[in-house]
Structures are given as structure tokens and as C-alpha cells.
Design a protein around this nucleic acid. Structure first.
Length: 678
RNA sequence: GCUGCUGUAGCUCAGUGGUAGAGCGCGUCCUUGGUAAGGACGAGGUCAUGGGUUCAAGUCCCAUCAGCAGCUCCA
């Protein structure tokens, strides 16, 4: 007899109570019992069974006493279930409106859902309102979702009868291991589906189809391209409106929009796609950030190097980068048949040549060579965007050459460096990805034992440092070694890899660069290389940073830190004295001498996101004071010029971050679970 | 690279076959003001580029380039 530990639907803080049900009972029976207890007040649409999101049609397990929590209409934890049901409703609507529709996958994503499909007549954007209207009819009709379980043979028969070739293929290949499969029926619409679903589409409060795009069958670019319809669904119109407002807000925070508005960077088609031109203000932010990183590099025992932007093709043949990445490199510069140069796609080969320039002793290890190294990669045209995906970028790169027994300490040092940078900029929401090799792929160089060793070392350090996330992800490694990536979301919820620490036993090997050091035993040994970049690249990092701060940089990073505003032209001379005082204190100071009223000048400075304004008029001049105005806190009142300068000098020196905008909490477009898992 | 959408003044955008518009910004002048918009006048566009259809194209068609969303990719 199944026994569960039931959470009180009226008081989830109360201790869960054990409760037994007849054999073969489902969550729906639990729901019915609770409804009886509460006089029908509780209306569950889904449940958490031992922490797993399930539908009311889920069976209670015979064993154990799992915790069960019923989720009612409006509970955000039930959103994925409701959204998946919305995907079915959308597919049903499309099948009513279009002929010969073949369905693929329809999972839940961060803020909504999608369904991949192929229709005889392709769907266009103009069709979306019609599909939405049909969905409304289906939601209003509120027919129940009904689960049916069948064996594989019957499942194939059903999808064949439904004329769903993609589903047939999926059952025969992707689902070959499943002895039984489930379908959900809703009126005339029957779909192969693992579930769960809400009891009926009446639970869907507000739905909107958001976009239409191409997507490959089973995510493979060699397969046919299908149409993907994206939608979002919420329990109420207010929730949907709030979500659409957040999207609107995200558009305003987009670094491409702010980069233009605030004169940070530009991209010229004449220079080339994906090649960032840093305007003075953007270059200033970058310079300040580089200065911060340089300070840390020096403190942490790194030594600077400089290397050229090109190198002979042979260098990359030895490293192993060439020709594996031929498609994603700019074509070689050919001087003679046997003299070809590549724009460098990474800095490591150059740095290994510095290591190799003379014999190395164990006494000089770890050797940490750092360079803001600019690299060029010919990314596919469809990947390019703003500063986050570009064809030329500068890595805050360094390569650490160390003895095997120093690896853990050095990896830990790199992680600590990255954390210091992220904390200094108030990045408190990121995840750490352990990029391991895909054991079934042949793109990785070096013997498996070296890989196992490297992966184990990295995982050990990452776990000891309690980094958030830390799930190993096969296939995310570099071709020469596993890595620890720091992944941060942009304003639209898309993930970007920023900082990275990569452990490499391969490039130093005899087959590659054959690096050595003389050990204490006077014998030759192989060093280990660590590739690391706390920011990743200046372009991508600052792109994400712009969105992180919504363009409103803290004082220490702002291109213009202080703006002096004379109340009228009568105070111009005094304003210039004030300006000089702030400049002398090393603060980036501007002055507004426009023939405008004070209010208009304040407004300009506020809109340009200048962190601090210094208002000075006749009253200040007479008293030797200035009036500070904080962009966030407003008028701070009059104070002596010296006090004002000191106050800002101190805030700048402390690299204070007093404020960052609220995260928008957008979830992106990636499926919550693997879409192939039916 | 693929699918779809978009390209008009520095910016945001209106203009659906018949002589290029608005707001903001910019410039000049007036106004000399105390914490988010003072006023007047003015300059500024081969309507992305190249073809085509038409008596006539910013507007319709094709190609190219560029951007956007998604997919694929990302040393």
C-alpha cells in the first residue's frame, strides 16, 4: 500500500504528514482526498513527487514514503507542466489550420515552450495571430488531457496511422530502449509524449506566440531543417504582461543598444563584421578594467609578455590547431609557397615559444606568462552579434607552466583570481561548468589516462572551492584538455562563457611542443600548462558587463566619472577651477558649459549615466564649496571642494559598487530537459 | 553556414506606385538660471548597394551586403 508524506496545501511550512492510499493510486487520488478535506478549496494541477515535477495521472510508488506536494493553479513551480500543455495546444491548433503537419519535439524552455514541426505550406509570421486565436478556442473548450500507455509496436502503429514520420523515426531510434511509451490525447489530437500535463488546458491563463525560427531535426545541422514556433504561457494576463515588460526592459539594456547610445563601441561593415571599434568611452572602460587585471596579475606573480598577431602555419600544425579549425580561421597569408602565416587564433603557441626560448629549471616554476592577446577567428556569419560573438577579440590571457605537483594549487589560484574579478563587479549569479571530453569523439588529442588525470584534478579543485554548479559536461572540453568555465547570463537570459581555466597535459608533450624543465633530480621533466582568462575576452566581458549594469557603471569604471555643472555662465571660471581640482585627483572629469538651465544639464548628465555631478554657482564660489549630486541618491548638499574631491577619490580607489540594476530573470530559449527525451 | 524578419537624417521611427517627413540630437542667436527638458531660427537624406518591372519605384521583384531572432558552431 503506497504511503506518502503529504505537504499541507494550506501551510507548506507545516511538517508533512504520512498518508496511505490503495494500491494503484495516483496523484489524482491524493488530490481528491485533499479536496474532500478542504471542501474543494484546493485545486491541484500538478505535483512534486519526491522533488520531481509530475502530473496528476502519476502513479504513487509502492515503496518508500516520498514527499508529495500538490501544486495549485498559479503556483510558479507548475509553470513548466502548464507550458508543455500549451505546446500541445499550439500543435493542435496548427494541425487544425494547416494540412500535412509533421510534428517533431515540443519541450518547455526558460520562459515558455516551442514545438518543432514541418507543414506542407510553411508557416509565416502572419499566421501566428490565427494560430493564437485557434489556441484560445481550444483553451476555452477545456477538453481533458488523457494519458495512454502502449507497447512499442502499438506506438509505432499509432504514429504511422497519424502520418507522423518524424515520430516513427524517433521511436525506432531515439526511444529504442523504451519497452512502453505514452501518448496524450486531447480531443482529436493525439501525440507521443512523456508528459506530464495539466488536467486540461483551462489552466493556461495567458498565452502568446513569440517567434518563428528554423531548427534542425534532432539538433543536427546535417538533418532537415524544421520550423520552430516559440510561445510563452502564464497563469494570468498580468504575469504575461509583466514578462513582456521584462523583455522590453531587456531590449533597453542590450549592450548593442547601450553601446550606441553611450558611445562605447561601433562596428563598421567596411572594417568588417564582428570587428569591434572601441570608441573613446568604451576604450576608457576597457582600459580601467585592464588596469585592475594588471594590478592583480602583478600581485599574483604573473609576468608580462608581448607577442605578435601572426605566426607561421607550422606553429599551429605542431600545436594541433591546424587544420582541425581550418573553417573557423582567417585564411593564411601566403608570401611564398613554403612561407605562410596565420592571424593568431589563440595565444598559447606563442607563449610556449617564450617558455622554450631557453632551458627551464624547476626553480622558476610556476612560470606565469600574461598578455592581453588579440586573436582572430572566422566565426560563422550567423553567430556574430555585438561584442559577445566577434571575429577579433582580446583575451586577458595567461599560460602557467608548472610541475605536476603544483597543478592543484595553480588551478585553485586561477579560480580565486576569477572569483576576485567577478566579486569586484558584483557578479553574484553565475554557474561553473566542468568541460570534460566526449569519450565517443575523436577530436581530443592525447592519451585517455592523461585526460582522466586532468579531469579528476579539475573536478577535485572545483568541488573543494564550493563553486556553484560544477556539473561535468561531456563534450565541452578544449581539444587539448578539460576546463572550468564561468558562465553568465546576458539580459535576455542567454548564457555566455566568460572566465575559463583549462588544464593541459598535451601541448607540452613530446608529440606537440616538447616542453621540458630540469628537476631537482637533474633529470628532464614535462611541465603542465594551464590556460586561463578570468574575463575571457575584453569584448565579450564588457558586452555582458554593460548589460549587468544596464550601462550605469559604478564610479570606478565610468568613462566620465564626474561632471562639473556651473549654474550659469557667470560661474564658468569657478567651474573650471573645480574641474581642475577633480582632474588633479585623477578623476575622469567633464564640464557642461552649454547655454542651458541647470535642470537641463542635470537631466543630460543623468541620461548619460554620469555617476556624480558637481554643481557650482555663485553661492558656492563665495563659500569655496561645491554641491555634489549623486546619480542614484540625488542632491547631497554643499561641501568644501576638498571634501568633495576626497570623497570621490576614496570611492574610486575602493572600486566601490554601490548599485546594480535588478536582474530581469528571463529564462532564455534552451529546453529545460533534453528535447530528444520525448 | 541554415530558416525567418529587417535596412528611410547622428538616434528612434512615420511614409504601400506620382516632387522625402516628425521627435530627439546637432549648429547659431536670445535668455543667466540652484538640482531631470527656456525660446527662436537653421543645417542635415543618391531612402544599404546593384540590377529588374513600370510612363513613373523609398514603395513591387531578384541578387548582394549588413543587422536582428532562433538553429548549428565556438581552439
Amino acid at each position: 500500500m503506497p504511503t506518502i508524506s503529504l505537504v499541507d496545501p494550506c501551510d507548506s511550512a507545516a511538517p508533512a504528514q504520512p498518508r496511505s492510499f490503495a494500491a494503484g493510486s495516483r496523484i489524482a487520488d491524493v488530490a481528491a482526498a485533499v479536496q474532500a478535506d478542504t471542501g474543494g478549496k484546493c485545486q491541484p494541477i500538478a505535483a512534486l513527487l519526491a522533488g520531481r515535477l509530475v502530473g496528476l495521472d502519476s502513479l504513487l510508488p509502492e515503496e518508500g514514503e516520498p514527499r508529495v506536494e500538490l501544486l495549485e493553479q498559479g503556483d510558479p513551480r507548475a509553470l513548466p507542466v502548464m507550458r508543455h500543455s500549451a505546446a500541445h495546444v499550439m500543435a493542435r491548433a496548427v494541425m487544425r489550420l494547416f494540412k500535412d503537419v509533421e510534428l517533431a519535439f515540443g519541450p518547455t524552455v526558460g520562459d515558455g515552450f516551442y514545438y518543432d514541426l514541418r507543414a506542407e505550406r510553411p508557416i509565416t509570421e502572419d499566421d501566428l495571430p490565427k494560430i493564437e486565436a485557434e489556441m484560445q478556442k481550444i483553451i476555452a473548450a477545456d477538453e481533458a488531457f488523457e494519458r495512454v500507455e502502449v507497447d512499442r509496436a502499438k506506438a509505432v502503429e499509432i504514429v504511422s496511422d497519424l502520418k507522423q514520420p518524424l515520430k516513427v523515426e524517433h521511436i525506432e531510434t531515439g526511444l529504442a530502449e523504451h519497452p512502453t511509451l505514452s501518448f496524450y490525447r486531447q480531443g482529436e489530437f493525439v501525440d507521443l509524449c512523456r508528459g506530464p500535463h495539466v488536467p486540461s488546458p483551462g489552466c493556461i491563463g495567458a498565452v502568446k506566440l513569440t517567434s518563428l525560427a528554423g531548427a534542425y531535426w534532432k539538433g543536427d545541422a546535417n538533418n532537415a531543417q524544421l520550423q520552430r514556433l516559440y510561445g510563452t504561457a502564464w497563469f494570468s494576463q498580468e504575469d504575461l504582461d509583466r514578462h513582456l515588460e521584462a523583455l522590453e526592459e531587456a531590449r533597453k539594456r542590450d549592450h548593442r543598444v547601450l553601446g550606441k547610445q553611450l558611445d562605447l563601441f561601433t562596428i563598421s561593415p567596411l572594417v568588417g563584421s564582428g570587428l569591434v571599434l572601441w570608441m573613446p568611452k568604451g576604450a576608457t572602460v576597457r582600459g580601467v578594467l585592464e588596469g585592475f587585471v594588471r594590478e592583480e596579475l602583478t600581485a599574483r606573480g604573473y609576468e608580462p609578455v608581448y607577442t605578435p598577431h601572426i605566426g607561421k602555419v607550422d606553429l599551429y600544425k605542431i600545436s594541433g590547431h591546424y587544420p582541425y579549425y581550418a573553417d573557423s580561421q582567417f585564411k593564411p597569408i601566403e608570401m611564398h609557397e613554403d612561407e605562410q602565416y596565420l592571424l593568431k587564433p589563440m595565444n598559447c603557441p606563442h607563449h610556449t615559444m617564450i617558455y622554450k626560448a631557453r632551458p627551464r629549471s624547476y626553480r622558476e616554476l610556476p612560470l606565469r606568462l600574461a598578455e592581453f592577446g588579440t586573436v582572430y577567428r572566422y566565426e560563422q556569419s550567423g553567430e556574430l552579434g555585438g561584442m559577445t560573438r566577434v571575429r577579433g577579440f582580446t583575451q586577458d590571457d595567461a599560460h602557467i607552466f608548472c610541475m605536476p605537483e603544483q597543478v592543484e594549487q595553480e588551478v585553485a589560484g586561477c579560480i580565486d583570481f576569477t572569483l576576485k574579478v567577478l566579486e569586484s563587479l558584483a557578479f553574484d549569479s553565475y554557474r561553473v561548468r566542468l568541460g570534460f571530453r566526449d569519450k565517443s569523439s575523436d577530436k581530443y588529442v592525447g592519451p585517455p589516462e592523461r585526460w582522466d588525470e586532468a579531469e579528476a584534478a579539475i573536478e577535485k579543485v572545483a568541488r573543494e572551492m564550493n563553486l556553484p554548479g560544477c556539473e561535468p559536461e561531456p563534450g565541452e572540453a578544449a581539444f587539448y584538455g578539460p576546463k572550468i568555465d564561468f558562465v553568465i547570463n546576458d539580459s535576455l537570459g542567454r548564457e555566455w562563457q566568460l572566465g575559463t581555466v583549462q588544464l593541459d597535459y598535451n601541448l607540452p608533450s613530446a608529440e606537440r611542443f616538447d616542453l621540458e624543465y630540469i628537476g631537482a633530480d637533474n633529470a628532464r621533466h614535462k611541465p603542465v600548462m594551464i590556460h586561463r582568462a578570468p574575463l575571457g575576452s575584453m569584448e565579450r566581458f564588457i558586452g555582458v558587463l554593460i548589460e549587468h549594469f544596464a550601462g550605469a557603471f559604478p564610479l570606478w569604471l565610468a568613462p566620465e566619472q564626474v561632471r562639473v555643472i556651473p549654474v550659469s555662465a557667470k560661474s564658468e571660471a569657478y567651474a573650471r577651477t573645480v574641474e581642475a581640482a577633480f582632474k588633479a585627483a585623477g578623476l575622469r572629469t567633464g564640464i557642461d558649459l552649454a547655454a542651458e538651465k541647470l535642470g537641463a544639464k542635470i537631466r543630460s548628465a543623468q541620461l548619460e549615466l554620469v555617476p556624480m555631478m558637481v554643481v557650482c554657482g555663485p553661492r558656492d564660489e563665495a563659500a569655496g564649496t561645491v554641491s555634489l549630486r549623486d546619480r542614484l541618491d540625488g542632491d547631497l548638499g554643499a561641501m568644501s571642494l576638498e571634501e568633495a574631491v576626497e570623497r570621490l577619490r576614496d570611492e574610486n580607489a575602493r572600486r566601490a559598487v554601490r548599485h546594480k540594476p535588478k536582474p530581469l530573470g528571463l529564462g532564455g530559449t534552451k529546453p529545460a530537459a533534453a528535447a530528444e527525451d520525448y
